[in-house]
């Protein structure tokens, strides 16, 4: 029995030692795991915050994109509609000018246009071009401008005159079309303001 008892004692001793070691290992592992968990918690929170903040940023970005492009689309449609309105007003006004009565004040207008044109060109020896409708009015006005003669060629315009120096080097376009074209940006603004835009 004696040798067996020694063996059992030894086995018990080894078992107890191993048990102690295992328990210690388990305890250490548990502590390590706890530590790892504790350490990863702030990282997790940081990661979570970053995901939320990135998500919010992205959402803001998309919101800006959607709102920005929709606003722009609406504004652009408004601009096109406004332009359509302005064009209609313009073409109606041009029609009225084209069909305006050529008597009365109109001859004064032609006189002014001729006077202005010859002054700007700085020569009196000029050829005057006008449309078929205005030929008579211009012809009678030319009596006041010595050296000026009316061309037999007519031009296509609403009214007014084109003056060319006789040597052909200088031309001054004083037709109603050109004057309207020159003032078009200002007239557009006026018309737009009647539509309640640009005030």
């Amino acid at each position: 029995m004696a040798p067996n008892s020694t063996l059992e004692k030894s086995i018990d001793k080894i078992l107890k030692k191993t048990e102690k070691e295992i328990l210690l290992d388990l305890e250490n592992s548990s502590l390590d795991s706890k530590q790892t968990l504790d350490n990863s918690l702030p990282k997790l929170e940081q990661g979570f915050d970053k995901i939320i903040s990135d998500g919010n940023k992205e959402a803001n970005k998309i919101e800006k994109q959607i709102i920005g492009s929709s606003e722009l689309e609406v504004r652009n449609k408004q601009l096109l509609l406004l332009e359509e309105g302005v064009d209609k007003v313009f073409s109606k006004a041009l029609d009225q000018i084209a069909n305006a009565d050529r008597s009365g004040d109109y001859s004064n207008l032609i006189n002014t246009l001729l006077d202005e044109s010859t002054k700007i060109l700085g020569v009196t020896e000029v050829t005057v071009f006008t449309n078929a409708k205005d030929k008579d009015v211009v012809q009678s006005a030319l009596s006041k401008f010595s050296g000026a003669e009316l061309s037999s060629d007519t031009i296509d315009c609403l009214g007014g005159v084109i003056i060319k120096s006789k040597d052909g080097t200088m031309t001054f376009d004083n037709t109603i079309d050109t004057r309207i074209e020159r003032l078009k940006p200002l007239i557009r603004k006026e018309i737009a303001s009647k539509f309640g835009v640009g005030n």
Binding site: M170, T171, D173, R179, R182, P185
Partner: peptide, 12 residues
């Protein structure tokens, strides 16, 4: 902006 236009020259 004025209603007055400019002179056109053809001698280049």
């Amino acid at each position: 902006m004025t209603t007055e236009g400019g002179v056109q020259y053809s001698k280049i």
